[in-house]
Design a protein around this nucleic acid. Sequence first.
DNA 1: GTGCGCCAACTTGCATGCAAGATGGCCTTC
DNA 2: GAAGGCCATCTTGCATGCAAGTTGGCGCAC
Lengths: 238, 238
Amino acid sequence: MARMRGAAKTVPAQEVERRPSLVDDAYAALKRAIHDSSFAPGYQASEQEIALRLGMSRTPVHEAVIRLQEDGLVRVLSRRGVLICALAPEDMREIYDVIVAVEGRAAELLASLPDAAREAVASELADYTEAMACAWQDRDLPSWGQADARFHRALVERAGNGRMTRIIQTITDQSHRARMLTLKLRRELGASVTEHRAIIDAIRLGDSAAAQGRVHDHRLRARDELLPLLESFGLKHL
Amino acid sequence: MARMRGAAKTVPAQEVERRPSLVDDAYAALKRAIHDSSFAPGYQASEQEIALRLGMSRTPVHEAVIRLQEDGLVRVLSRRGVLICALAPEDMREIYDVIVAVEGRAAELLASLPDAAREAVASELADYTEAMACAWQDRDLPSWGQADARFHRALVERAGNGRMTRIIQTITDQSHRARMLTLKLRRELGASVTEHRAIIDAIRLGDSAAAQGRVHDHRLRARDELLPLLESFGLKHL
DNA sequence: GTGCGCCAACTTGCATGCAAGATGGCCTTC
DNA sequence: GAAGGCCATCTTGCATGCAAGTTGGCGCAC
């Protein structure tokens, strides 16, 4: 009955592209609901209720919730429902440490690329930064936030390390609500443009130590600007 | 029917300690099986078969497999079984980047601790390093590996960042087999002791830049020693 | 002998049933 | 009136049934 399949037998051709399953649907829907605060932090829902709302049975919801728990977005309280996780300032401190670590290494890697690839990346990053500068002049906060997000995502993705990309994606998901909130509170958005340009210069010059250091300083400055804001506003949980 | 629980209602006392479920059992058992190569990479098993072997139904196995997939240890091939993931040298390169990033930041944080805490951590790290030196003299590879693992785990855990700890835990799980293999291949185990001592000194002195840089160099040296070994031995997948 | 196609077996996706545990309200008792 | 205990209800944990899709082999045709 239990047929042992040989280890050497490679993956059978088809490049493993799953069509979207109900689990994926539930996962995406729940993540979106959490991001746009349809499910506010602290809210406690039952899988049954979520399943009903999404028009499917409990099983795919349950599996999606497991994945969300791995992502740190919810917690499953045994026999008591699903709790949407809140983010404390302490969590934001942790998150910034991870960002500093990963983006710093990514910048280092980018600065070590061959000339042509390096220039291409620098050029792309410069585009996003100019978009930020324009948005800043126009006082267009949403555009500024979008361009900033693109800059930081490209910074990591272009380093070509899937694991680092995934880590940043997870961390970004976790802090999504906080970012949306703080975008309106911050004052020094202009400084980011200058710092981004410094990062880009270091990458252009192939100075990996400087690239790492400047990303490091950029993110720590942003953190030190943000955390007091959060605490002064009494945002104990986001 | 669908009773909406208030968001403000805090977690009901009990500090959320799940007793081990069948899912946890399956998860632990599978991870162990993968680590000790009972399930070799490339092996393809069915959830039914695993469930039978573990004496439970398919449901908890299925959920455990989902978690293992999140950890990057297996892949679920839709309607074709569970594939134990193999690690290519390219994966090891990615893994080392993550380690360099996270451990580097952790060292930085440790060097920024207050005097007493810093000294305590340095002292603990020194203990592990001395254990490595002894094991190296005795040519006791398993002990060396264990002490080295403790050093690196403490380096991250003592920084007090749960997310960084979790990332390192995941990465460590992924590369477990590779580490076991390469422990026997490496020649320069002695250099690690010297480098560890340099890291500890930087932490003791509160020099966070030096601490970060020395961890950085230590891990990159180890990587550059290891990767050629793997490739020369033709270990395309571990 | 070779190649093609059909089919049977096997696999996961998902729904649902049942059981055990947690919770909150109601009733009883003092 | 207040407090404590019992019970109904709600919740997830897990087993299992059914359906849909994939695979490999067997047999048939040439």
